[in-house]
Write a protein that binds this DNA or RNA. Structure first.
Lengths: 187, 187
DNA sequence: CCGATCATGTAATTAGTTACATGATTCG
DNA sequence: CGAATCATGTAACTAATTACATGATCGG
């Protein structure tokens, strides 16, 4: 059963495990502080990935007793797992699936809405973008308290990516509002 | 069973059905020419959504005989479906899930790669971006042959979104390559 | 006339989420 | 001392994909 192959989620977890052994729960917290920004994963999802990786021999686990907290199962990446990870990292096949963007569906059919209804839609979206923009700015500047990202320039570049995207999306929003402010066909 | 609620995919299909009745297969082709760019759906997925929508009373269907091709089941949006769609369109809750970006995972762990291995990764990603950029440019300019997008400015704005994103991502790629060209920590 | 493609869809499987469970510890 | 939160995870379910089926028509 479940001879399913590895997904980017699997590799994200293998990557995090190269930073040291972790329990599923701990991986959840770590992921939230790191890859969450460009590869969100829920904790339950992490658990199922770990089982799959263990079946493949890419990780091993030991039960660790604790006092004051439930026992935990701590996972470590194996040599085989590291080889698999490195092969994936080096693979140039550009697996760029198209992102799914709910707001754009709404906009695509927005001529069904009354004139006044589009503005609030854009406004609430703008608020999200602004918030994320400052998060990314802080990450890129390396001043994110309690985040302790490893200090190598690849990490910073991923934050720069988010920052630039937010800026581009905000600029686009400006354009949208400008277009809507002028009368035209279909409005 | 399956009292599951409607997802953005469901609403995308309802939206397409406002353009006229279609079979599942026809919706697949239509989606490919329209919402595909920001909300990709596979054909099998469309069929399951249609069943769900029918259970909810948001669409109705009739079997239509054909000669030269298999019979088809043609779906139409109901008044109830239209009301549901409009309510969703007007809802300002910003359902902006974070996009998942496989390349960024690779980059996040790229210090595991040999120096020379990062460049080809970026190059193949760049090629994808360039291709999409010109697609979006054509869509935004309204010169996409065989695409027959409805001509209202909301459609064009969604194309502008894609165009701006591609430009932003390409600019970021330039930055990445510039940073990698200079010696520094973690390279 | 044979292989590819079109038009239509179903079945099987995987990926990922939301809801639930459980005991310890900490805060007001 | 009761409520919230932490730490750990499982179960149930939904969303979405890949693989399969089937007959007609079309191009060489």
């Amino acid at each position: 059963m479940s001879r399913a192959r590895l997904t980017p989620s699997s590799f994200a977890i293998l990557g995090l495990l190269t930073l040291g052994p972790r329990s599923g729960y701990e991986l959840g917290s770590l992921a939230e502080r790191t890859v969450q920004h460009f590869w969100p994963m829920t904790r339950p999802h992490i658990y199922t990935e770990l089982s799959k990786l263990e079946r493949f021999g890419h990780v091993t686990s030991v039960e660790v007793e604790q006092r004051g907290a439930p026992d935990k199962r701590v996972y470590s990446i194996t040599e085989r797992g590291e080889r698999e990870l490195d092969a994936w990292l080096a693979d140039t096949d550009p697996e760029v699936q198209r992102p799914r963007h709910p707001l754009l569906i709404k906009l695509f059919f927005a001529n069904r809405l009354e004139a006044g209804a589009v503005r609030p839609l854009l406004a609430s979206y703008r608020a999200v973008l602004e918030a994320r923009k400052s998060t990314y700015a802080a990450l890129a500047a390396g001043v994110m308290p309690g985040q302790q990202w490893p200090d190598n320039h690849y990490f910073r570049l991923t934050a720069r990516f988010g920052q630039r995207r937010m800026e581009a999306d905000l600029a686009w929003l400006d354009e949208v509002e400008a277009v809507l402010a002028t009368p035209g066909p279909g409005a």
